[in-house]
Design a protein around this nucleic acid. Structure first.
Lengths: 343, 343
DNA sequence: CTGTTAGCGCATTCAC
DNA sequence: GTGAATGCGCTAACAG
């Protein structure tokens, strides 16, 4: 079913049909009536590719995100974005990255300002710092530049889409895995990694909530305890942790709520502790290595590639057709459990 | 980079460039040299959509598969095929299904013959019966009709692609889950569902192998035992099974190697047995219900939708461009672990 | 307000 | 052997 066919069926010109479809210009009531009558039963669907071909618009997409490190989370997201660019190669897209140090607010501000100076048609935001990100969004709103969120979301923004896993569910699933790994009388510990800045706070918070809720509804099991570990500066904090583990052999199972599971795994290994289970997040190269080695038992993964792909896909649809904002969840991307056996 | 640009850069006409790109006609050495020089550094990639637009070919795809039941495995595959058809809606595709009863060789033969009578451009094969499928493939080979396999594969065929999870790995993963669910002193039982016909034998065989290999390398754990359960005819076989379970309370964990986990779960429930764990395959509606109810602990899932999507995508690429056969694995689709908490 | 036309990238046909 | 012309579905600009 093409525009031409519609026009023939309704006795008007293709131009008019196009005008009605994209409610571009003023159209007479009669013409509209005739065309819509045909449209009602014809299930016409616009061919996005020929449409783009004709529009021959070119879009520049900006991506702001934490520094992309090979084999890391945002590296996979970029892979997904690349794939989408490939898939829609008939649409002229240029993608520019603005990376920032996720532990440095100033670097983030700088990246955001650069982005605002560059003229871009749409933005993919991988935000870390709430205040700065919200401010960025309101600037974009003013310029009516559409944007989507990946991984995080903040309230009070008008994003066109939002791509992330359901972190609360992730936490629940993690709870179940921990529950399985630890025998009834053993203890579970959630390791909170101290970090400069408020990074990932929303996601890890949701995960913790899910985890706790799992254990609340779980009779006959001690509630997991928490340990705050500082991997960066104070050496003695690490040693304290190791000592604590040595002194509490019944702590059999450790949860790491962000992608740094490998750091904990390596720390244990370098101290000759090999009788604890670790469950972590994200299939980064380092974490995969630990899964291989057996120092991590389970990894919970989002689908970063899919997130990247769908983000760009969403923006393209929006740029071409202003298709409805769908600002809520865009079909929340799922969680995946990864084990050594799957590698 | 367009054909026109290439032609300008190399000082020939677009027609000639096209001839060279698709090595269609005889082209003079000089022209070829000039164009290939430009091509070498220009990384031209044909725009599949405009290409299809111009070719305005229409393809008819045939799908042969076991009867599609709503909420079942092949239903999801069809969803993926539909999605691909949507995504490539600029290419005129008609998809026709030939379903057969997977427990009835004759019905399968009938479907295969119908398929061969219908003239189609390519085939997606969800085979069950080896002999019949191999024969179908050789008929298709003779007509040089390309085909891909979903879910199963048989040797001696010349498929253009093959979309399935790695069943051996699935088995290993299942082993790990069973190992986790059952306490050290408890026993694990693999339930083999007796079925008419040789259905799914390859897949379940691979799964069993993986499962066994997991436990071989797993010290201090009894090897899982097997029970062959006949759900269809003999009532006493079921009762025997229930009695056996009642008499062996240390059998805490049951594995079902195909998608019928829900049948076992329901059987236990209707007999008031609720202290056993079940691990099964495939996220069918029935299995999902059991996961919800808590009667199934884990489901291992392939990505049937993705398999369907990629199958059609692969065929399109092949039909349009005879792109290299890639008859091996086409990036084996992964396995996924599903739990109640993810729902 | 509406029909006509040209052109996007590509493949084919038809003159040369 | 090769270039020019045409049309696929769609949009935009222009002329009525």
């Amino acid at each position: 079913m093409t525009i031409k066919q519609i026009s023939e069926l309704s006795g008007v010109s293709p131009g008019t049909v196009d005008r009605i479809l994209h409610n571009r210009d003023k159209v007479s009531k009669e013409a509209r009536a005739k065309v819509e009558a045909v449209l009602a039963k014809a299930d016409y669907r616009c061919n996005i590719h020929t449409s783009a071909l004709s529009l021959r618009k070119s879009f520049s997409i900006a991506v702001v995100c934490p520094t992309i490190i090979k084999g890391d989370y945002w590296h996979s997201i970029r892979a997904g974005i690349d794939k989408a660019q490939e898939e829609y190669s008939d649409i002229e897209l240029s993608v520019q990255y603005f990376e920032y140090d996720q532990y440095d607010t100033e670097s983030c501000k700088r990246a955001f300002n650069q982005l605002l100076d560059s003229s871009c048609s749409a933005v993919i935001i991988g935000g870390t710092f709430e205040e700065e990100t919200v401010s960025l969004c309101s600037s974009l709103d003013k310029k009516s530049t559409p944007y989507v969120f990946i991984d995080t979301r903040f309230d009070g923004c008008h994003q066109v889409g939002h791509f992330t896993a359901d972190q609360y569910k992730c936490g629940k699933v993690m709870g179940k895995l921990l529950d399985l790994l630890a025998l009834a009388e053993e203890r579970i510990c959630v390791i909170r990694l101290a970090r400069t800045g408020s990074s990932h706070s929303f996601n890890t918070g949701e995960r913790l909530k899910g985890l706790q809720d799992y254990f609340s509804s779980c009779a006959g099991r001690k509630f997991p305890e928490e340990f705050t570990l500082n991997l960066s500066s104070q050496e003695n904090n690490k040693e304290q942790f190791i000592e604590w583990l040595r002194g509490n052999r019944d702590i059999s199972t450790l949860a790491v709520l962000n992608s740094k599971g490998h750091s904990v795994a390596d720390l244990l290994r370098s101290n000759g502790i090999s009788d604890r289970h670790i469950v972590g997040f994200d299939a980064t190269d380092e974490n995969i290595r630990c899964l291989h080695e057996g120092t991590i038992s389970f990894l919970l993964c989002q689908h970063p590639e899919q997130q990247g792909f769908e983000s760009l896909q969403r923006l393209i649809a929006y740029l071409l057709y202003r298709s409805p904002a769908n600002s809520g969840d865009t079909g929340p991307v799922g969680v995946e459990i990864l084990t050594k056996e799957m590698l």
